[in-house]
Amino acid sequence: MGWQSSQSFAWDQLQPSQLTSGSQMRRAFRSVVSTPRSWTVRVRSDGKETSLGAIVESDGWILTKASQLEGEVTCELSTAERYQAEIIGVDGKLDLALIKIDAKNLPTVKWKSDADPQVGQWLVTPGLSMSPVSVGVLSVARRKIDPAPGVLGVQIDDAVGGALVKHVMRESGAEEAGLKPGDVILSVAGEEIDSARALSNFVRKFLPGDRVLVKVLREKEEVTAVVVLTDPQMLIYDRLREMQKKMGGALSRRKTGFTEVLQHDTVLRPEDCGGVIVDLQGNAIGLNIARAGRTKSFAIPANHVVPMIQKLKLKEYAPYNPLKDARQHTVSATTSS
């Protein structure tokens, strides 16, 4: 279809029949993503879809969402070609990762960083297929998203030499990592733990989505596990979590602590973050970084993303490795106790 000026409001540009069908609505935007889909890759970790990515340099440099990555990373192009990828650099503040594949002469992102779209304008998320992954409008102009503290997802008490795990919360990072009631947590990210209070105070320095190495004493044997920290709200409010799943799907683990974001109402899976979001001219105005609510997603503006490419390429930011001191790779959240 022929699009009007990008200054027009979104709903004025579609036929009534296109507003009642999600697939028809996405199909109407195929011309917008005909080029951007060629810059887009599907990122998998250990064979599982984890994020989208954006090709930023033609010899195989790709940006994606950092906190989604773990294990063996591969990328699939819009041409269906698949490559193994190496994580080169990670910036915890923006939750960005630069990865590298062995490929040449790839199409690259066309950024637009000189001006933001206006509230109410269409924004489109390309995937690998001809139709976009999702379509929405800019709902809130750029703003800061304050950090929330990460939590392990355990109820704890004091123990000799550490913190005793009394209960492991359902769907928490601790449960996924295999922590059990009766474990005594001895250290987190290299920091020795001598009490329940010390554990709580230390973990609060990290963000949801951060990975930390946890050492526990289990039946007289020391065991280590990498725990992905959880958003405390989604643990406390079981009904909220279940309602969100039924009404709009899962939210991103890391969705707070960003200096500036563009908020849009696009419905994205967490696995569809990490790639670009474009205006109606197909220009990338930012990188989708988090699904934060039923109709609330965040994108890092292009003027924050572009300067990071060379910094990550030159390894000014180390690749994330929870077996090292995680404090070097994550953002300290300043929160009240």
Rank of each mutant, 00 (worst) to 15 (best):
H329Q: 15
Q13P: 06
M243C: 10
D114L: 02
L323H: 13
E49D: 15
T79L: 09
K166R: 14
S129N: 15
A177F: 01
E81H: 03
V216T: 09
A54W: 13
A189V: 00
A250F: 11
V188P: 11
W111N: 03
Q7C: 09
H264E: 06
E86P: 02
L186M: 10
G120T: 03
S34W: 13
T259G: 05
T335Y: 13
E271L: 07
F9D: 04
P307Q: 08
T35G: 08
N303F: 13
K104I: 12
K245D: 11
L152R: 00
D116N: 10
R204M: 05
H264V: 07
I277W: 00
F206N: 03
A326G: 00
E72N: 15
L312W: 07
Q121S: 07
K144N: 13
V168S: 03
A159D: 06
K65L: 13
F29C: 13
D12H: 14
P270V: 07
I99S: 04
D102M: 10
L77T: 09
N283G: 10
E76K: 12
D95H: 08
W122S: 00
H264T: 09
I145F: 11
S78Y: 12
Q244S: 11
V109G: 04
S17I: 05
E81D: 11
Q310H: 13
F206V: 01
V90P: 00
V212P: 00
T295M: 08
Q263V: 14
L217A: 08
A85Q: 08
Q233C: 11
P322M: 01
D210L: 04
G209S: 02
Q328M: 09
Q4S: 06
Q4H: 09
G173N: 01
R44D: 10
S252I: 11
V33Q: 07
E57Y: 15
V165D: 01
E191Y: 07
L14E: 03
V119P: 06
